[in-house]
Design a binder for these strands. Structure first.
Lengths: 200, 200
DNA sequence: CTATCTAGTAAGAGTAACTGTCATAAGGTT
DNA sequence: AACCTTATGACAGTTACTCTTACTAGATAG
């Protein structure tokens, strides 16, 4: 029996990581070449030189190849690191800029392509609701922490909901070809508006 | 060649309506008896005494049997009918009460069962995002109308987004067994909080 | 009232996303 | 070297859909 803290650098783990990355890359390539629906799992598996069974062992559904956002935890950390005296919405805006403002052009492009795909394919877009809900939950927890209330406090949940809603609105309003920087700016402006109490 | 304006009361039309209703009823019954996933389209078709092909002619997907909300247009109309000087959020709250507050117990129960099903089944829940987005669009249009701005005005879209977000939050927060009246009350309180500018 | 046209329906074949099982082989452990 | 764990592939099965074709009952024209 090995120790509790595994080194996690065995040949096995590395191979797994490589296989997963290969599947993901080939999938994204095929999606952009032929479209999402037109690409079958069988094709992806063949391109990545694995069996279809293996594909499904790495990704429970075809959708999941697209839907993991590696940036989420980073953003979360940046949010937590903001000074406590800031208004939660202001803190979120600062965190957004600190992470996404400094992102290298390449990363931004990958993210943008992924985003375009999600926006365009109904099945993918649909799954975003749970993603939004997850973020709502996280946001509520952090806000509760900062304001010194429970995460299930109605006031806290309302603020979190409003923020997520503004995010959804910005996401839908930004067209398929929207520049990431433009989207970020629009979202920031909306959040500022919300922070100010939604004056009309 | 018949006139442009058909009477639409032929035997044919009536039969169609009856078939559609039958499929829907049997589907909902089977869903509540066996669960959504465990019920196959074949079973539904058999119960309604039609072929699977016919099922798909009436409902493009299995999901669509559940996902149509007959109450939406009514609510919309009630919202439009509110006095113009009311704050848009206030007007929405009034409209909600006027429609849902007066709904007969039976209708409320049907609506509640449908809602529980949607909440519980990921595939159905997912499709709600587009539903929310549709409502966001409608809400933005009406708000724009009332405030005398364009529907794509960022301020208008932000308000609409925040309202939808608060709705989503309330929807997720209300557990599966939530009483419709309680949900309504919680949503109303959240909207009031939003209307007041989200004081913490 | 009959011939004809239209449209709802069934039947059946085909596709693709999964799901589950089992045998094998390669990685890691003692 | 013997053993155990785990990634993998092969394969069979299920189910939501799609498409084509043929039939039939309802509506219309003469």
């Amino acid at each position: 029996m090995p120790d509790d803290d595994r080194p996690a650098t065995g040949l096995r783990e590395r191979k797994k990581a490589r296989t997963k990355a290969a599947i993901q890359q080939h999938a994204m390539r095929l999606f952009s070449e032929q479209g999402y629906q037109a690409t079958t799992v069988e094709q992806i598996a063949a391109a990545a030189e694995v069996s279809p069974s293996t594909f499904f062992r790495y990704f429970p559904t075809k959708e999941d190849v697209v839907l993991y956002d590696a940036l989420d935890p980073v953003l979360l950390e940046a949010f937590r690191a903001q000074p406590a005296e800031l208004h939660p919405i202001k803190a979120l805006r600062e965190a957004m800029w600190s992470v996404l403002g400094e992102l290298p052009e390449g990363e931004l492009a990958v993210q943008s392509e992924r985003d375009t795909l999600i926006r365009a394919v109904p099945e993918l877009r649909a799954r975003m609701l749970d993603e939004f809900a997850k973020n709502l939950e996280l946001f509520a927890e952090i806000v509760a922490d900062r304001v010194g209330r429970r995460p299930d406090d109605p006031a806290v949940r309302t603020v979190a909901g409003a923020v997520i809603g503004v995010g959804i609105s910005a996401w839908y309003t930004a067209g398929p070809g929207a520049e990431p920087r433009d989207f970020l700016a629009a979202l920031d402006a909306s959040l500022a508006h919300l922070e100010a109490g939604l004056p009309l």
